[in-house]
Design a binder for these strands. Structure first.
Lengths: 246, 246
DNA sequence: AAGTGGTCTAGACCACCTT
DNA sequence: AGGTGGTCTAGACCACTTT
């Protein structure tokens, strides 16, 4: 632990703890040894060890409970990643959309596999096997989103056979628990468009009503694209809310 | 500085330094006294003072140069705050919008002062004195945004008399340098709408074309709202791009 | 050589939770 | 009461920049 002089001690300790978490030595939800024990084990001072834990806590990998101990964080991606990224009513109130799943299916080849757009986003070959989920999301019992979700079948074996009623509202938790796919970053492209005939039908609006189109690609911890999602959103009485912090 | 036992010392020091920056005692780009002097002034230990500086550095308020000193950050807000928040072409290339300023004016009272919406966003009284800037922003020489910017006159004394051609493209730099107003956070509401007659004229499109409407409110270091901005954006061949990191 | 920030230590005391 | 994390101190030494 004192070998390299180039990298600071607290950095080395931090990385060691991180790999021990990644290797499963300390599972999410379990408590680490107390600070004095860890300091003894790593042969560093209390302060140095604390600096490592402080940084990991700041990065949400660890959660500390005063008087109790330090635990490995259980990542709640839906809340952590999309916390500053919400649907709100005009009055500013946050909303919690519910889902109505319409169809789930899988396929490969030119007609049923990944389109060029999907292949590009997911970094797979056009025509590769994918699973598609169609759903409508409702806010205050009113249909607001029309969603088209595509994931590579290879990463989600068996997803296509899950009954529609068993697919939960918060997909990313589900992905983590059932398929060990943890969403860690995402990007989104937002533009305005006219409602299609299907949007009109699903969202109970006139065709050509202006709606938002959001194209989202999600990545896992290693940076592999794992989900492509196109959302058509009706912004009548609602809006997309984003917070930025410097 | 030792009065309250409830809030940690480093927190008090941090907030004190923050207000001294906000009050202009240490302008952006200037160096603070060295750590030992500051520790002496605040009657705290080196470590406690460092913790305050560490947090401010992490929040990009200060920038440290080993061997030289600690300086107040020159925030390039357009790059720092809106770094993951850009206009992109369909091919994914980033763009750098330019501006055509149309009108700048100030006023107060029922007709020319803050509207209810502006007053609400800026936390001022309806009818309070404001300065308004109208501009069109161009990407690749094509008008894409129609912008309506409103700021409280009190914070921007003399802004209304600045010649249009002297108002730069990157407003937040300008605000910091000329008015000591540093944008530190923002929120944005995004929705879809039909282009108005004015949008059609300014953006060379048909009325009722679907466009994005973005309502942005910016806040300074202390959390005071300092700018309200409504942008109408044509998303033909371009989109709004957002990155999220867990 | 002098001055600045960066790392690290050893030890003290406080606040909170559990038993 | 005992154990945990949270705060704070005083001092040492290192790395970098300037004079």
């Amino acid at each position: 632990m004192r070998a390299l002089k180039s990298t600071p001690l607290y950095q080395q300790v931090k990385e060691s703890i991180l790999s021990r978490i990644a290797d499963g030595e300390w599972a999410p939800g379990t408590f680490l040894p107390c600070e004095t024990d860890l300091a003894k084990e790593y042969q560093v001072s209390h302060g140095t060890l604390r600096r490592a834990l402080d940084e990991l806590t700041r990065e949400h990998r660890l959660t500390r409970y005063q008087g109790k101990g330090t635990a490995v964080s259980i990542l709640d991606s839906d809340q952590a990643l999309f916390k500053f990224f919400q649907i709100r009513r005009e009055d500013g109130a946050s909303t919690l959309p519910t889902s109505k799943n319409i169809r789930i299916c899988s396929g490969s080849g030119v007609h049923k596999g990944a389109t060029h757009e999907e292949a590009d986003a997911l970094n797979i070959e056009p025509g590769a096997a994918v699973v598609r989920l169609r759903r409508v999301r409702l806010v205050d019992h009113r249909p607001l989103f029309n969603e088209y979700i595509t994931v590579p079948q290879q990463l989600f074996q068996g997803l296509e056979n899950v009954p529609l009623e068993s697919i939960p509202n918060t997909l990313y938790d589900f992905f983590q628990q059932k398929f060990n796919v943890t969403i860690s970053s995402a990007h989104e492209r937002i533009s305005a468009m006219s409602a299609s005939v299907e949007d009109a039908k699903r969202l109970s609006i006139e065709p050509h009503t202006p709606i938002l189109r959001m194209d989202r690609t999600c990545f896992d911890i290693k940076g592999t694209p794992v989900e492509h999602r196109v959302t058509h959103m009706l912004t009548d009485g609602y809006h997309y809310y984003i917070e930025l912090h410097g």
